[in-house]
Design a protein around this nucleic acid. Sequence first.
DNA 1: TTTATATAGTTGTTTAACTAACTATATGCC
DNA 2: GGCATATAGTTAGTTAAACAACTATATAAA
Lengths: 146, 146
Amino acid sequence: MPNNQFKKGELYSFITGKASTAIARRLQKKFNAAGLNLTIEQWSVLYHLWKEDGKSQQELCNATFRDKPSITRLVDNLEKLQLVKRVASESDRRINRIYLTRLAQKLQEQTMGLAEETLNEALDGVPVERIDVCKAVLQIVYDNLK
Amino acid sequence: MPNNQFKKGELYSFITGKASTAIARRLQKKFNAAGLNLTIEQWSVLYHLWKEDGKSQQELCNATFRDKPSITRLVDNLEKLQLVKRVASESDRRINRIYLTRLAQKLQEQTMGLAEETLNEALDGVPVERIDVCKAVLQIVYDNLK
DNA sequence: TTTATATAGTTGTTTAACTAACTATATGCC
DNA sequence: GGCATATAGTTAGTTAAACAACTATATAAA
């Protein structure tokens, strides 16, 4: 019997991601309460641009684990919100590079603060070493399947 | 400093649930490959009805962590697929009880097998005790936020 | 050079999530 | 009984995800 065998009936939460759904909902509520007109999905794109501005749409696909149509439409909506600009690459005209606007740059500190706050609420009462184990397991799951 | 403090820059995967997204996608592909015309979300409703048939829509909301409009539409689509039937409760006419059809009963074994298979692929190389820690942490997160 | 193939991005369609507003029924209080 | 309130479910509108089909550009091979 492999050491990763599951007992039947224990699979549900793992598959449906109730924990991450709960985290995302809580964070969205904080955005709304702060008067931020921003979805979690839009924020997740900004998150990767804050780390490195000017990523291509394909790079955003890889970073956010979304497919190309999803990124096309997220970038559409972020452009409407004046948070990013598409800039056609000169060296390769298939590529759009996505750049943050001033407005988006200003959102980083506030939204990252709310995200940290949410995670502290989520992990209240969980010792650090167990968080580390959990993170490592989720990383392996992701690497096994991506 | 609380013992649940996060280092900045480590929050992304936890919030966006890349692991559970990867699991759900893999399972959906298995459904498609098996010729099953069924979404993971629809399957998650059936899952709870297999455990206890005749749940009300509100009970399905609680079990699946979805809101009422989501369940209304999932049940709509499951009815179109002839997998469930709405039956108005006689004792409380506000309530619909949702019953599996023969067709849906037949799907249990096959789809649960594919779900187990998916989880074994997902958790390949992860020792059981680390899986248990991870599951426990995710449960606490859910309880902290739900 | 032209032809095939791969890559980047867009568009159309279906399903689902979230919010708000709505209808219908039940319950509790006067 | 009559009224306020709570609960169960539906409908409408916006955003997002998955998939297939599409356009445009780049690369590699003949």
